[in-house]
């Protein structure tokens, strides 16, 4: 667990940016990594101001209102038709979404 986000921001490395791009499933050209590193480091440096406020004991608030689960009645409803679901698909074979082969030879 890293301790101080401020030092992390300043220390953001190109290797970390490459790793984050991979986690985010983005294909970033090698010549653009440094540009992203500089921009992200600037934002993270600004965000480090959050450290200046004492937040000990403050309960995190993920949502504007303390909402509770609202369950819908368990009644079957018509969903989207297959035609509607497939109308935006990049590739279709009959009633199916077509995707490239996922497993390599021998997998």
């Amino acid at each position: 667990m890293p301790d101080n986000p401020n030092s992390k921001a300043a220390a953001l490395t190109t290797a970390q940016v490459t790793h984050v791009a991979k986690l985010a499933r983005l294909e970033v050209a090698p010549e653009r990594i440094e540009e992203y590193r500089t921009q992200l480091a600037a934002v993270l440096g600004h965000i480090a101001q959050l450290d200046a406020v004492d937040l000990t004991g403050v309960e995190p608030m993920a949502h504007p209102f303390e909402s509770h689960n609202r369950l819908a009645a368990d009644i079957p409803e018509e969903g989207l038709s297959i035609e509607a679901v497939l109308m935006n698909a990049p590739a279709v074979e009959g009633r199916f979404l077509a995707v490239p082969k996922v497993l390599a030879e021998g997998d």
Partner: peptide, 11 residues
């Protein structure tokens, strides 16, 4: 360090 702190700040 980031997300949880931001949610505390939100409150």
């Amino acid at each position: 360090a980031y997300y949880k702190r931001a949610l505390q700040m939100r409150r």
